[in-house]
Design a binder for these strands. Structure first.
Lengths: 340, 340
DNA sequence: CATGTTGCTGTAATCGTTTACATTCCGCGT
DNA sequence: ACGCGGAATGTAAACGATTACAGCAACATG
């Protein structure tokens, strides 16, 4: 109940018998002061219980002390590990990590609210829908290299980005199915217009061509990374005249929905049809059947994105500007795939 | 590339031909100025593109302009919807939402780093492990009613909290299984010492007693809400002499792990054994078999927690202080349960 | 001994708001 | 005519840090 009296830098200065400037210097650059002074200051800080006031520091230093993470949908578990990685990556920096959900409000409003308001120093975006004019405008104002895209990216702009090897992943999946003897391979895509959808679909089709496998238009099934879209895809497959023997899904969530629908329709996975996912979220290993999938290290993607942004914010600006990192993928063979 | 010149309040004042005080007043309390003045100021703001500098405002008003959400493990999808709810709940306020993962660093360090540093005005904690002395110390410093617990809570302290009807949920589960003819009902718990573990286990046992159902010590299986712990529990059950015919799990994740392990061990769910979960995360509906579970509206829990905290921060302090809200639960009957 | 150099430290301006207090203006009652 | 009250506005002092600049030893150099 006792109201705490705020300890200011001047209190520390008094306690240590030095000036405020010396205290400030001791904190930001300890080597510049005498050893005796340094010790006196640290002792005074300890005694008084001083903690630097961020608002004051931020005001003076003209920064926000925070970064924003733009998440397409916080409700989607796919993003949680990425968030964890980003959060870990900013551990030890004195930047706070803010989050905003782009599901409801459009990104432009958010960008305006945060960037222009000076509430943030930089941003990691997991959402490529957020682009266009507003981002270009921001970029023109010089914040362009304090923006990093993770997982997704924007095709024609050149912001820094971290992504997994989407093409390699698609190839791994197709090659593996091919090796199992599958010829009729379908693909459950992500949402229309999405860069990941495009990258994975194109790579999948290229590999299918390379291996001289048959292709039918209805084998490219439009999804949107969601459970429900996978479930719906199952209905379409069940109704097909030329039913594929394997399906490569652009996301694990889609694969779960698909399997659930296929099983409900009386098919057995993998006996009647093989399913392979993309992402390797925690649950994949414990699904029934355990999901064969392409693993992308989501935590590492988050950490790397954080690293890139920190380099821009803390280091010499321009160091890591607009660089692009790619994280390798891995085929996780489990029980949802089998011989044709 | 053009560096933006920052527009200050004084620039607006000049443009509108008034003083800075008037501009500030117009912004914070429009009714107090003349209509003509107000319009002139708004016009000047529009023309200059002025945006208030949060750091300066925060410094002057002695606040942080942010709230912290303490998440036990960001990697766990269970929390994502709660986060989404909290995030939505703070939409439109001028508080930023920060997140911190308590998985690595202990809460005390985090609380210190954030609360004492004045980086936040309030906090929503999803982690009850964070309690003890540090929290008591904070509470003594008067921030006690700017702390809200969601999902979990601390037994002996009285902070505001939002929780689901854990007891009612456990009863629903047991009654349903009982109605299906099950007598030998086991329970997969949460981690030791956790309030949810305790609440659900006690209620489950009480209901079992009330219905005069048999109980064996090995039918209470220690878990920790994780997939892996559920999988491990399956091994134990498979090895039991007196095997239960149904298992009530304290979490959906545990239930998934359990089913995955039971199936791997040659059992069929629900023919050989019924499994019921708790939470109803998105995936439950699409698991194979679709999981019968107790649904708690996680988004609503998050929104309610946000609401409580906002009331404390924005309204007259003490309004919603230390209040406790309970969110109802619902039995979702699906395919993982069947007659004994 | 004057002078320049080096190395710490202190003084005070600054960051951009909010707001207590002072001021001005105007209408109105006596 | 005078003073008074109240509304609208202005002036300037905070808020609590950082840092340019100045000051001051101590010391080496010529």
């Amino acid at each position: 109940m006792t109201q705490q009296k705020p300890v200011r830098i001047v209190d520390v200065a008094r306690a240590a018998g030095v000036s405020v400037a010396t205290v400030s210097r001791t904190l930001s650059n300890p080597d510049v002061v005498t050893e005796t002074t340094r010790e006196a200051v640290f002792e005074a800080i300890r005694v008084t219980g001083y903690r630097v006031n961020r608002a004051a520091r931020n005001l003076r230093m003209q920064r926000a002390g925070a970064v924003l993470v733009l998440v397409p949908s916080l409700g989607n578990p796919f993003f949680s590990q990425i968030l964890a990685g980003i959060s870990a990556g900013f551990e030890g920096s004195d930047y706070s990590v803010l989050i905003a959900d782009t599901a409801k409000h459009d990104c432009n409003a958010i960008l305006e609210r945060y960037f222009l308001d000076g509430r943030i120093d930089g941003m990691i975006s997991l959402d490529s829908r957020c682009g266009g004019e507003e981002l270009a405008k921001l970029s023109a104002q010089g914040v362009g290299d304090r923006i990093v895209f993770a997982c997704e990216w924007i095709e024609d702009a050149d912001f820094a980005s971290v992504r997994c090897d989407n093409e390699g992943g698609a190839r791994l999946a197709i090659d593996y199915l091919h090796g199992l003897g599958h010829r009729a391979i379908a693909h459950l895509t992500g949402p229309a217009g999405n860069v990941l959808t495009h990258a994975r679909r194109e790579a999948m089709q290229a590999e299918r061509r390379r291996l001289d496998l048959p292709a039918r238009p209805e084998w490219i099934i439009r999804g949107d990374f969601s459970l429900a879209s996978g479930h719906e895809a199952a209905r379409q497959i069940l109704a097909m005249e030329h039913r594929p023997t394997a399906v490569f899904c652009a996301s694990d969530m889609g694969a779960f929905g698909l399997i659930s629908g296929l099983v409900a329709g009386g098919l057995d996975v993998p006996r009647d049809i093989s399913v392979i996912g993309f992402d390797d979220i925690e649950l994949s290993e414990y699904y029934v059947p355990a999901l064969t999938t392409i693993r992308q290290d989501r935590r590492r993607i988050g950490e790397t994105a954080a690293e890139l942004l920190r380099a821009q914010l803390e280091g010499a600006a321009g160091t890591a500007a607009r660089s692009r990192r790619q994280i390798g993928v891995e085929l996780m063979i489990r029980q949802s795939t089998g011989p044709a």
